[in-house]
Amino acid sequence: MTDIDAAPTVLIRTEGALGRLTLNRPKAINALDIDMIRQAKVALEAWREDTDIEIVLIDGEGERGLCAGGDVRALYDQIVGGDAQGASEFFRAEYALNLMIAEYPKTVVAIADGITMGGGIGIAGHADIRVVTERSRLAMPETRIGFTPDVGGTYLLGRAPGRIGEYLGLTGGTMSAADAVYAGFADHYVPSQHLGELREALGKRADPTSPSELVLLFDETPERSVLAAERAWIDEVFAADSLAEISQRLSARAEVSASATAAVLVELSPTGLAVTLDAVREAREGDLRDALIGEYRRVMWFVRQHPDLVEGIRAQLVDKDRSPKWQPATIPQLPADAGADARAYVPEVPLFD
Rank of each mutant, 00 (worst) to 15 (best):
G146A: 05
I55V: 15
L243Y: 10
S259T: 14
Y167W: 07
D5G: 09
L21W: 02
L198T: 07
I121H: 06
I55S: 10
S269E: 01
V109F: 08
V237C: 06
E348I: 07
L99A: 15
P332R: 12
W326L: 04
P324T: 03
G169N: 06
S242P: 08
F302C: 08
A40C: 15
A74Y: 01
I37L: 14
P335K: 11
A186V: 02
A229R: 15
Q327E: 12
G158C: 00
S242C: 02
T14Q: 14
P149I: 03
S242M: 06
A252D: 10
V56E: 03
A87M: 02
I4Y: 13
R137Q: 04
R20F: 00
I121M: 11
T9N: 14
D33E: 13
G16H: 11
K204V: 00
Y76H: 14
E61G: 10
L57V: 07
Y76R: 09
V108M: 09
R48I: 02
P149A: 05
S242E: 05
R130T: 00
I34S: 12
P270W: 03
S257D: 13
D337Q: 15
P350F: 01
I58G: 08
A232E: 11
G173P: 03
V131F: 04
T209V: 15
A110C: 12
G203R: 06
Y95R: 10
Q316L: 12
P105A: 10
I115H: 08
T116E: 03
G62T: 07
N30K: 13
D83N: 14
A274F: 00
A7T: 12
E220W: 07
M175L: 06
G286I: 00
E54I: 07
L18M: 11
S212N: 11
A263D: 15
L292V: 08
G82W: 00
R289G: 09
G114D: 01
G153D: 01
A342P: 04
F218P: 07
P149E: 02
T154A: 15
R92N: 04
F90D: 02
I4P: 08
Q78K: 12
R231T: 13
G152H: 04
A228H: 13
R314A: 08
L11K: 15
G81M: 01
A183G: 09
D219P: 10
E282V: 09
I29G: 09
Q78M: 12
E197L: 14
D219V: 08
V310S: 13
A43P: 00
Y189T: 05
N30W: 04
G19K: 08
E142T: 12
R25D: 03
G86F: 00
T271A: 09
R253H: 05
A96K: 11
A283G: 06
V215A: 09
